[in-house]
């Protein structure tokens, strides 16, 4: 038995890992996108994507800029068409195609939180949360008070603003404004909450609060979050989907995606070797 010297040893090479077969998902689906194609004019942003969104779980969508992840998110509550886009395919919410439904009703059931906090500038903190309720015709003051308090508590903002509900929403910090927008979204009692980079403009403390909030909210809501921050996707989500140039490359439980992804392109992206 001769000992090989370091020089004699071949340079180590990493083989492509093989993952174990993902377990069959038994979680019921809240929404399903089927053969979804989204376009802006002639440009196709989403290419034949079929993806289930499991009930009361957090699905994170990751991928490089321009991969279509925000377009996909917006197609789930018909915001894509507001931005001038067109689509083919179906998006089912509890088995019914949202594109055969009233978009206002769809957006009430499928709420959205945007990258940049966008409180209504002329409204107080209270009115920001109550706006959607009033728009939906709720006039009972006690009921409105009750829902505003509940929504602010759900958004983990109540303790910080309960004594200043009449102050302008714009008086809050960036992180508080984002939680105010989450409270506003929750006030109309959606079933699904879509979040597009909800913490990308926030400091680490505010980001941690939003992430804790997402974790708590999944007890009652189905959540889909688009994020550029892969550590954030790993921390908050149960499932992760990887998009690349408009295609869904891989979706799996988050632990598998970040320890042993099945596709080489996913591996290369999450390990920072491309993208």
């Amino acid at each position: 038995m001769e000992l090989a010297t370091i020089e004699e040893l071949e340079a180590p090479t990493m083989e492509i890992p093989q993952a174990t077969q993902p377990e069959i998902k038994t979680i019921p689906e809240k929404m399903i996108a089927q053969n979804l194609n989204c376009f802006f004019g002639k440009t196709q942003a989403i290419k034949n994507v079929t993806l289930s969104i499991p009930t009361q779980k957090v699905l994170a969508i990751i991928g490089p800029s321009g991969c279509g992840k925000s377009t996909f998110l917006r197609s789930l509550n018909r915001m894509h068409e507001v931005a001038g886009g067109t689509m083919t395919g179906t998006v089912l919410l509890d088995g019914l195609n949202i594109y055969d439904s009233d978009p206002v009703v769809v957006r009430r059931r499928v709420g959205m939180v945007f990258q940049k906090a966008n409180p209504f500038p002329m409204m107080s903190i209270f009115d920001n949360v109550a706006a959607g309720l009033r728009l939906n015709g709720l006039g009972d003051k006690n009921k409105v008070n009750e829902i505003v308090e509940r929504s602010l508590k759900q958004a983990a903002l109540w303790d910080e603003v309960k004594d200043s509900l009449n102050k302008s929403g714009m008086s809050l910090s960036g992180g508080q404004q984002q939680r105010l927008c989450i409270a506003r979204t929750l006030a109309v009692d959606p079933e699904v909450v879509l979040m597009d980079e909800p913490a990308s403009a926030l400091d680490p403390i505010s980001t941690a609060k939003i992430e804790e909030l997402i974790y708590d909210l999944k007890k009652n809501y189905t959540i889909t979050i688009v994020t550029h921050n892969m550590q954030q996707a790993a921390r908050v989500s149960d499932y992760t989907a990887f998009f690349y140039v408009g295609e869904l490359i891989e979706v799996d439980d988050t632990k598998t995606m970040f320890t042993a992804p099945r596709k080489k392109r996913t591996e290369d992206y999450i390990t920072g070797r491309f993208g």
Binding site: P17, A19, T20, Q21, E250, R262, K263, K264
Partner: peptide, 24 residues
Amino acid sequence: LAQARIVKHHAEEKKTGPVEKDAN
């Protein structure tokens, strides 16, 4: 390291084996 399989303590005996890596 190579296959993301935990084989110590016979941990895998009740699980399915590895699948072919997708070329994508």
